[in-house]
Design a protein around this nucleic acid. Structure first.
Lengths: 193, 193
DNA sequence: CTGTTGCATTGATTTTAATCAACGGTATTT
DNA sequence: AAATACCGTTGATTAAAATCAATGCAACAG
């Protein structure tokens, strides 16, 4: 159990057997069926979520009733409403499963205790957060500086599996486009080549 | 010296006198005149930069020759090209002073050693990174979900001093707008009220 | 098998912001 | 003090994407 989880952890830090035992006592397994929520807007985000298997997304519903996808999370990725998680305020995002999924949950206090009890995990958390920060920075850069087509191809190169596993209109939403615009952009790209 | 720096640090963690001494040995003071660069696109970002005084910005120049402002940094804020800083690759951003500034620089290895020698600083770095992450998340949310006017007012509320200290066309750039569009939006808002 | 639902595509129209261009005011420089 | 650069505003035009609407297709449920 928790194979992917510990594999990912061990890519960055090396846990002793004892540490791993401590770790396991904080982990909560959770299975999620397609379309099920793990977090709904307005609830407090109690857990930091690690995806062992499957595919999740976080999104908001805008005033017109459209989903605005904030993030996808494949196997080995983390997802949460970070702001709600650390402040305890109601979440602004929904998180649900786009495919049946197996998750590993860690509570806020669980995370705090783990960082205290296993200093290596504090280091992991720092590096993890730094990577997440850089990813956001890149995404922001892309939104400001790249064209629709460039943004789409960038995503497809970075995460080809997203293209296969997620319907196109959700990719459009993630890129901040309407489905129609993405469809036309793809057509453009196909004919250009 | 380094008053603001240690003040900010002590808001989060408490350093002993000895730790502060260690810290000081890693700090590099630097004064910057208005319009001077501390980092230019293509160079490697060698330092994590803390602003003691003054105002910096990071930006890219797009293919049309316009500045695209990524970030402002007021007193007490950190700024760098994080990606270049941790990978050693050439920076994609320029960083320069919008006002005469006093900075505190820490090198990459300096940061690493500090995190090792002073575990509290690792904790600080984690929390700092987490806040930066959340700030980015919010900004991305704003770009996707808020109108031009909402984004502008949000920024002005969050950072009123930016409005006083930064010319409007730079704020437009930060918000991802042309100066003309921001000017018109402001007019709109004024008449609406 | 048949009706329903979700999805991608395409066309026509509207909306929004970018672009191009000009003007007046202010600050800076020499 | 005169010249210059910088800045914000405004108007006219263009370009890009959103919106509205319709169609075809595939998967799925009853």
């Amino acid at each position: 159990m928790y194979e992917v989880f510990f594999q990912k952890l061990n890519e960055v830090i090396t846990l002793t057997g004892e540490e791993e035992t401590i770790f396991r006592s904080y982990l909560l397994p959770k299975k999620l069926r397609k379309k099920q929520y793990i977090l709904q807007e307005g609830d407090v985000c109690k857990y930091s979520i690690f995806v062992e298997k499957g595919l999740l997304r976080s999104y908001t519903v805008n005033e017109k009733g459209n989903d605005q996808i904030v993030q996808f999370a494949l196997e080995g990725w983390w997802i949460s409403d970070m702001y709600s998680f650390i402040t305890g305020e109601p979440a602004r995002y929904n998180i649900d499963a786009l495919e049946d999924a197996e998750l590993v949950l860690i509570s806020y206090t669980g995370m705090e205790e783990l960082r205290k009890r296993i200093p290596k995990f504090l280091e992991f958390s720092f590096l993890q957060m730094r990577n997440a920060y850089i990813a956001f920075e890149k995404r922001l850069f892309g939104i400001v500086n790249l064209t629709t087509e460039e943004r789409y191809t960038e995503l497809m190169q970075r995460c080809p599996s997203i293209g296969q596993r997620v319907p196109q209109h959700m990719i459009a939403s993630y890129l901040g486009l309407t489905p129609e615009t993405l469809s036309r952009a793809r057509k453009q790209m196909a004919t250009k080549k």
